[in-house]
Simulated assay, not measured.
Amino acid sequence: MTGVKTRAKAMMMVALGAGMLAFASPAVAQEVAPDQLALARQYVDLTDRSAVYEVTLVQTGIDAMRQIIQQNPEIVEQTDAAISKVLENYRGRKGELLDQFARIYAVRFTTEELQQIVDFYESPVGQKLAQTNAEANQDLQRVLQVFTNNLQREFFAQVRAELRAQGIEL
């Protein structure tokens, strides 16, 4: 029975991987008109209020510092200097990531749709939405975390009850 479960898990992982590749590939493979890509990039620029690139760089630097210092606490200053130097190499590369984000939107929306999206995000309401999205997303993540924690406990309890009804005790 264990072999069957292992094969089933492996097949599920292959299916998930294939599905993820199929989902991701249109943005990579499809050509996009320059004006469409420019509008998509404009949208990305208008909505990048949480500075995702900068936050990712800082978090990566912190993670590297923790990993190195945990094993080599005597080289804190040298590690800090090295991380600062490497961060400088990445500071001017934000556009590369945002261009990739723009390509994803450009593949999924027409030029006309992108123009409507940009027009909205240039409006006062669109600007307010872009400014509050980061905070709202944090609140949404907290709500989802509470929901997930409760769901996991309730779900497990209900599965146990169903198994108990079948005479199986965990």
Rank of each mutant, 00 (worst) to 15 (best):
A102H: 09
L98A: 06
N89L: 05
E112R: 01
F101L: 15
N89D: 06
G92D: 15
R108A: 06
L98Q: 05
E96Q: 13
E112P: 00
V86C: 06
T110D: 00
E112C: 00
A82P: 03
K85Q: 14
V107Y: 08
L98H: 05
T110H: 01
I83M: 01
L98E: 08
R103C: 07
L98C: 10
R91N: 11
G95Q: 13
A102C: 13
G95A: 09
N89T: 06
T111I: 02
S84K: 06
R93K: 15
R93S: 15
G95P: 11
E88K: 05
L97T: 09
I83V: 07
V107L: 07
G92S: 14
F109R: 01
A102E: 07
R91Q: 11
I104G: 02
A106K: 03
A82D: 05
A102Y: 10
S84T: 06
L87H: 05
N89R: 07
R103L: 11
E88R: 06
L87W: 02
R91K: 13
R103F: 11
A106S: 10
L97E: 07
D99N: 09
E96G: 08
Y105G: 03
E88M: 08
A106E: 04
F109Y: 04
K94Y: 09
T110E: 00
Y90A: 02
F101W: 15
L87P: 02
K85C: 12
Y90R: 03
A106I: 06
L97K: 11
G95Y: 11
A102K: 08
L98I: 12
A106N: 07
A102N: 13
K85A: 15
Q100R: 13
L97A: 12
F109I: 03
D99G: 04
G95T: 09
V107A: 08
E96L: 11
R103M: 13
F109H: 02
T111P: 00
V86D: 12
T110C: 00
R91D: 11
I83Q: 01
S84I: 05
Y105V: 05
E96W: 09
E112W: 01
E96A: 12
G92Y: 13
E96F: 11
K85I: 11
L87D: 04
S84E: 08
Y90T: 03
N89V: 04
L87A: 05
R103A: 09
A106Y: 06
K94L: 12
T111A: 02
I104N: 03
I104W: 02
G92A: 13
E88W: 04
R93Y: 15
R93P: 12
Y90K: 03
T111W: 00
K94Q: 14
Q100T: 14
F109G: 01
V107I: 10
G95C: 12
G92W: 15
A102I: 15
G95N: 12
G92H: 14
R108C: 04
T111C: 01
I104C: 03
R103Y: 09
T110N: 00
K94W: 10
A82H: 04
A82S: 06
F101Y: 15
L97M: 15
E112Q: 01
I83P: 00
V86S: 09
A106D: 05
